[in-house]
Simulated assay, not measured.
Amino acid sequence: MANTPQSKKRARQNAKRYDVNRARRSRIRTYLRKVEEAIAAGDKDAAAAALRLAQPELMRGVTKGVFHKNTAARKMSRLSSRVKALG
């Protein structure tokens, strides 16, 4: 348990950041799921539109420290290649 004032403050900050990061990660996953659903349905136009909306959200997650840069790049690459393959 936190004893010093500094460690108590850090515990409060960590709890607050945890909530913010969890909400942001959930939001990004929702955007990615919409792309996945459009791909599964075989709708190329909807998948491309969902991908265009998901990309800035994913990159914002990188700048906010929720995802690593390479993780986001890998996800975008794999999703875009799957959308492109819908033909």
Rank of each mutant, 00 (worst) to 15 (best):
H68G: 15
K16Y: 13
M1T: 07
A54T: 01
N14P: 01
R24N: 09
R29V: 06
R27V: 02
M1P: 09
N70P: 01
Q13C: 05
R22I: 04
I28K: 01
A48C: 02
A40Q: 15
Y31D: 13
P56G: 02
I39P: 00
R78G: 13
N21L: 02
A72G: 05
L58D: 01
G61P: 00
E37W: 07
V62L: 07
R22E: 13
R24D: 08
N3D: 12
M76C: 04
I39A: 05
R24P: 02
A49T: 06
V20R: 15
Q13D: 12
A85S: 11
T71N: 13
R78Y: 07
A72P: 04
Q6G: 11
K69G: 05
P5N: 09
R82M: 04
R17D: 10
A11V: 08
P5F: 02
A47L: 03
K69I: 06
Q13W: 02
L58V: 10
V66N: 03
Y31I: 04
G61C: 06
V83T: 03
S80H: 06
D43R: 05
A73E: 09
K44W: 01
Q13H: 10
R74K: 14
L32F: 07
E36T: 09
R74Y: 10
N70C: 01
G42F: 06
Q6W: 06
R82Q: 09
S80R: 08
D45G: 06
T30A: 13
A85N: 08
V62W: 03
P5S: 03
H68T: 12
